[in-house]
């Protein structure tokens, strides 16, 4: 199931969320708070946890078509020793996620062989046009749509096809995750 989340670290780091226990207690489990506090870079670790939770939330919401909720604490993150992949549990469901971290961004997406992710700093439409051109069609007439639960998809006018996609933007970055379905 697709889900992805991008964090612009230049923007995020100014928020110093890891220093605010009240914030942490609304978002994280006790175990996650311990890991953040004992980390060498607590702010980076907090945003890794946040992007994992957001990624799993998007996948979980799409999978069950459930209404939006602000319940990040219920998404429990588990890390492997290297911390580049992780697992997020919610209501008995597990989502494997992969983290890509650079000096100025964190990108997280669900791990699935058939998912293509695309990130960039151009405007959202241009990134999507480039993505579609390389994977589906040169068509430029499409709409981003959201269903009644706010779950996004992309409607390709000429192909009369709806493809699901996960969208994330933060600061200067935009990221998409799209399942690769060959027509």
């Amino acid at each position: 199931m697709i889900g992805n989340d991008i964090i612009d670290l230049n923007l995020a780091r100014t928020e110093k969320k890891s220093e605010n226990l009240r914030i942490l207690q609304k978002i994280c489990t006790e175990g996650e708070i311990e890991l953040i506090k004992s980390s060498e870079d607590p702010e980076l670790f907090f945003w890794k946890v946040w992007s994992m939770k957001e990624t799993a939330y998007k996948a979980h919401q799409r999978l069950f078509d459930i209404p939006r909720k602000l319940n990040p604490q219920k998404y429990e993150c588990h890390f492997n020793p290297g911390n580049k992949v992780g697992l997020v549990s919610i209501d008995g469901c597990d989502y494997n996620v992969k983290l890509s971290i650079s000096a100025d961004s964190i990108h997280c997406h669900t791990r699935d062989a058939s998912i293509e992710v695309f990130t960039g700093v151009k405007n959202k439409d241009q990134i999507l046009i480039n993505f579609l051109a390389s994977h589906y069609t040169k068509e430029r007439t499409f709409d981003l749509r959201k269903n009644s639960q706010g779950i996004p998809s992309c409607y390709l006018h000429n192909l009369k096809k709806i493809i699901p996609l996960s969208v994330s933007h933060h600061g200067k970055f935009t990221a998409f995750a799209i399942p690769l379905i060959k027509s």
Partner: peptide, 16 residues
């Protein structure tokens, strides 16, 4: 989120 375009991390700030 939809009308005010507040990002979800900032929504937690709003609650505080």
């Amino acid at each position: 989120l939809n009308d005010l375009q507040i990002n979800s991390a900032n929504l937690v700030d709003v609650i505080l």
